[in-house]
Design a protein around this nucleic acid. Structure first.
Lengths: 227, 227
DNA sequence: GACATGCTACATGTATACAAAAGGGAGGGT
DNA sequence: ACCCTCCCTTTTGTATACATGTAGCATGTC
């Protein structure tokens, strides 16, 4: 909640809201009232409005015609489509990363992977999760293509509010780790075609896991509204 | 220039500016002053500001720290990177389109292509260009994946201000037409792998043409600043 | 003459007040 | 009893006035 390190009010409001959405403090579907937010942050509607506009453009928030805005809800078919694109994009990223990463970057990727193995073996799930995410980011940035990085991340942030539900799926971590290992080796070795295909499939599976979760939620929602 | 068909001022300002940028009336590098724009559209700074924010997020406009904003300039390396991503994305689009287009959509794609052949043979370059662009859009939308469509188009609009320079390159249209023909046949036949590869290469070549143009401009700019 | 310091002017960001459109409810009419 | 209309309320968008910080310039001092 603490902010203002040379940021404008609009920026700090946006960052704060983004954070609330990412952490689930503002869950999908939560409504956002301009005035309420203005009060909460002790600013006027102007910077709140500006922040909301940006959140809307980023896709994290949707504007409902006459009832304020709400945190974007992703249903099953949206989720499937999102991962359809995401897996292709990350595949492409892996391809370029395998071609372009500097030797230092390749080494760093290996190191990062080794750290996640350690975290996994130590049973430190939170740390493992964090490192695993960072692995993806490192590959994305390894493309050395700003447009690709931005495009991929823009999609990625839409998924953040949902990612935490990936945790705790039994057996996921093992498979995840194996995937990363293979991807890392392919990238380090410069086998760009392998890297692309491995990463694409890897992200696809991740998507399936999340889709399963969402499908579960959808069923529950349907049951609730039917009851 | 006149609008307001139920649009807010912010929206019509944004649309107007977008249009000016697309058509080259506001060329890359042109500076945009909030107050001047407010006067031009007879509105206050507030909606102009809102419009600018959106243009900045879309990447069409860049904010220069203390000298207003300018229409984004794309240099050679940016252009290369943009097309690197664009060709991959359009390749993916072709893949999904080849799998998912309805029979009606496939037929429409063939028809569209035939129309561009006609326009080409009639020597109607403007029409040919328009139809050729529409061909791309039809493939993109044929994916039936909103996220992919949006992602691809978001990149695409950054290129719009530059596309008109593709015109008038001798021999481009023939090759272009041949490419489209092959892509169309692959998509209609559902040969998704072929479609993907053909479209990817096609867009890559388009990028090379544009990159050549930009490189030319860069050289001139360098010569001018050196002289 | 050069550097530092303060002033000016502008760009940027913010607050507040105002206007307009849209929905819902209440009251009246059929 | 039901519907229609009008008004009121709430939300959204806009204008305007104000605050703030920075850059460039000028002025003064060393």
């Amino acid at each position: 909640m603490a902010k203002t390190a040379g940021l404008t009010h609009a920026e700090s409001v946006r960052l704060s809201l983004e954070n609330d959405i990412f952490t689930g403090r503002l869950p999908p579907g939560a409504s956002l009232d301009e005035e309420a937010l203005a009060r909460r942050f002790s600013v006027s509607r102007t910077p709140v409005r500006e922040a909301m506009l940006q959140l809307i453009q980023s896709g994290l928030v949707e504007k409902k015609p006459r009832q304020g805005a709400i945190v974007t809800q992703i249903d099953l078919s949206d989720m499937i489509r999102l991962f359809e694109v995401m897996s292709e994009l990350e595949g492409i990223c892996a391809k370029f990363a395998a071609r372009r990463m500097t030797p230092q970057e390749r080494q760093a990727l290996r190191k990062l992977h080794e750290q996640s193995v350690e975290a996994y073996e130590a049973g430190n799930h939170d740390k493992y999760y964090t490192l695993s995410r960072r692995f993806h980011l490192m590959v994305i940035e390894g493309t050395h293509n700003h447009e690709l990085i931005e495009t991929t991340n823009r999609l990625g942030i839409k998924l953040v509010p949902y990612r935490r539900f990936q945790l705790g799926y039994p057996g996921r971590s093992e498979n995840n780790l194996r995937d990363h290992e293979a991807i890392m080796e392919a990238i380090v070795a410069g086998k760009f075609e392998d890297a692309a295909e491995l990463f694409r499939k890897h992200t696809n599976v991740q998507g399936d896991v999340l889709a399963e979760y969402i499908a579960m939620g959808d069923r529950e929602a349907k049951a609730a509204s039917a009851g």
